[in-house]
């Protein structure tokens, strides 16, 4: 089979385990919403996702108490995802705008911004509580 090198390869692979990552479940559930509900209720177990590496850039974390309101994060944010609130001299971050570059983390002089490893951020509302960090 030198002219069809894939044939021995696929026959060998046939006996091996598939490489697919089965997160969140092996097969698509009939209803994804119901599946997620039952996972939350603890009835079904979800196949865990691949572990995030150290220094992963997930949903942003904001420490309001440390923040000094210097606005440097606003100047370096490529997506204009950070809004300054003049009355409290603090910022508000829109996660749906954020592009997860973590540049604000690097720029922050007092280390008030961090990246978590939370990456499952789907939501139905752009401005839901989960999608705004302040």
């Amino acid at each position: 089979m030198s002219f069809l090198p894939a044939i021995p390869e696929i026959l060998r692979q046939f006996l091996k385990r598939p490489a697919t990552n089965i997160f969140p479940a092996k097969y698509l559930p009939p209803s994804v919403t119901k599946y997620l509900q039952s996972v939350q209720e603890g009835k079904t177990s979800i196949h865990p996702p691949v572990e995030t590496p150290p220094n992963f850039r997930g949903k942003i974390l904001y420490d309001r108490d440390t923040c000094i309101g210097c606005k440097l994060c606003i100047r370096v944010c490529p997506a204009n995802a950070i809004e300054f609130l003049p009355e409290t001299k603090r910022v508000r971050i829109y996660v749906t705008q954020c592009i997860f570059c973590s540049q604000c983390n690097d720029a922050c002089p007092v280390d008030a911004l961090h990246m978590s490893d939370e990456f499952l951020l789907a939501d139905e509302d752009r401005y839901s509580e989960n999608m705004i960090v302040e």
């Binding site: 590496p53 220094n55 992963f56 850039r57 997860f100 570059c101 973590s102 540049q103 990246m115």
Partner: peptide, 21 residues
């Protein structure tokens, strides 16, 4: 790439004047 830069696709590692990590 994810291990080195923190993300799979948009690496965000280059900065004006060097690299961030």
């Amino acid at each position: 790439i994810e291990y080195l830069t923190g993300n799979r696709v948009n690496y965000g590692i280059v900065q004006v004047g060097g690299v961030r990590r």
